[in-house]
C-alpha cells in the first residue's frame, strides 16, 4: 500500500466510532489481482468519495462492503459485523447498508412505491400500511412523491436514480454506498441526483461514493480516496487532495478529469 498522505481529517460533527474497517483485503477475479492489500477505516457519519481510473477496483471495493463481491484475504467488518461466509452476518450487514447502482436497477415490473416497500415488508416485516407511509416519506424527500404509482420505465433517468436512493433509504440504513450513481445519466439530470445526495450528506449519513463528480467531492466529502490498479494510492481531505496531490498517478488522473 502506498498511502502518501494519511487521513488527517476529523470534522467536528463526526462521531468517532468506526463503522467500516477493512484490513489486508485482497481479491482476485481469476488471475487478475483486483484489490491489493486494502486497509480502510470509516467512522460513523464520514463522507468518502472514491475515485480512480476505470478498472482500478473502486467499484469492487465498495461492493465487497455488502458482499456483492467476496474477498479472498483479509478482514472486513461493517457495523461491527464480520463479513464471512456466514449468511446471517451477510443478511445483517445488508439490512444496515443501502446501495445505489450506476444503472439504477429498479424493478421494472413493480410500481415506484412497490419498489420502495418490497424490502421493508419482506425483510424487516414492516406492516404494509406502515411501509407505504415510509415509502411515501422518502419519495417525498427525494421530491418524487407524485410519481409513486408510476412504473420505473415511465420516469427519466434522474428520476429513476432518485427513486433508487429512496428505495435504499426505506431500509433506514446506517451506511449508504453509491456506485457511480450519475455515470449513466444525461448531463442535465446529474444535478438533481447530486442535490439529493448532498441533502443526505448534510443529514449525517455515512456515505461511500464512487464517483467522478469532483464538485460533489469538494462540496461534501470528508475524505477523497484515489485508487489505481487495485490499491489505495492516496487519501486526503478534499482541499488538500485537489490542490496538492502527492502521488504522480494522482496528479495525472486529476489532470485528465479536471
Amino acid at each position: 500500500m502506498a498511502t502518501t498522505a494519511p487521513a488527517s481529517t476529523a470534522a467536528s460533527s463526526m462521531g468517532t466510532s468506526e463503522v467500516i474497517s477493512m484490513s489486508g483485503v485482497n481479491k482476485w477475479y481469476g488471475d487478475f489481482h483486483v484489490l491489493k492489500d486494502i486497509n480502510l477505516s470509516v467512522r460513523s457519519g464520514e463522507r468518502i468519495v472514491v475515485c480512480g481510473p476505470s478498472g482500478s477496483g473502486k467499484s469492487t471495493l465498495i461492493r465487497c462492503l455488502n458482499r456483492l463481491e467476496e474477498h479472498q484475504e483479509g478482514d472486513i467488518s461493517v457495523g461491527g459485523i464480520e463479513l464471512t461466509d456466514n449468511i446471517k452476518n451477510i443478511d445483517a450487514v445488508r439490512a444496515e447498508v443501502g446501495m445505489v447502482f450506476q444503472h439504477f436497477n429498479l424493478f421494472p415490473h413493480l410500481s415506484v412505491l412497490d419498489n420502495c416497500t418490497l424490502a421493508p415488508i419482506w425483510v424487516k416485516k414492516t406492516p404494509k400500511a406502515e411501509a407505504e407511509a415510509l415509502g411515501m416519506k422518502y419519495l417525498e424527500r427525494v421530491r418524487i412523491g407524485e410519481q409513486a404509482l408510476k412504473y420505473p420505465g415511465q420516469l427519466s433517468g434522474g428520476q429513476q436514480q432518485r427513486v433508487a436512493i429512496a428505495r435504499a433509504l426505506c431500509m433506514t440504513p446506517k451506511i449508504m454506498l453509491f456506485d457511480e450513481p450519475t455515470s449513466a445519466l444525461d448531463p442535465e439530470m446529474v444535478k438533481e441526483v447530486l442535490d439529493t445526495m448532498v441533502d443526505l450528506a448534510k443529514e449525517g449519513m455515512t456515505m461511500l461514493c464512487v464517483t467522478h463528480e469532483m464538485g460533489f467531492a469538494k462540496a461534501v466529502a470528508d475524505r477523497v480516496i484515489f485508487m489505481d490498479q487495485g490499491e489505495i494510492v492516496e487519501q486526503n481531505e478534499p482541499n488538500a487532495f485537489f490542490d496538492n496531490p502527492q502521488n504522480e498517478r494522482t496528479k495525472e488522473f486529476l489532470n485528465q478529469i479536471l
Binding site: 455488502n66 447502482f101 436497477n105 424493478f107 418490497l118 425483510v123 431500509m171
Partner: peptide, 29 residues
C-alpha cells in the same frame, strides 16, 4: 439483467424472496 439480482441482494432479500418477487415475474413474462 444481473443488476436485478444484485439490487435484490443488496436490499437483503433472501434467495426465494428475490426469485418470487423480482426474478420469476419478469422471467416468466
Amino acid at each position: 439483467p444481473k443488476g436485478q439480482y444484485e439490487a435484490a441482494d443488496a436490499m437483503g432479500l433472501s434467495y426465494w424472496q428475490a426469485m418470487i418477487f423480482i426474478i420469476l415475474p419478469q422471467a416468466l413474462k
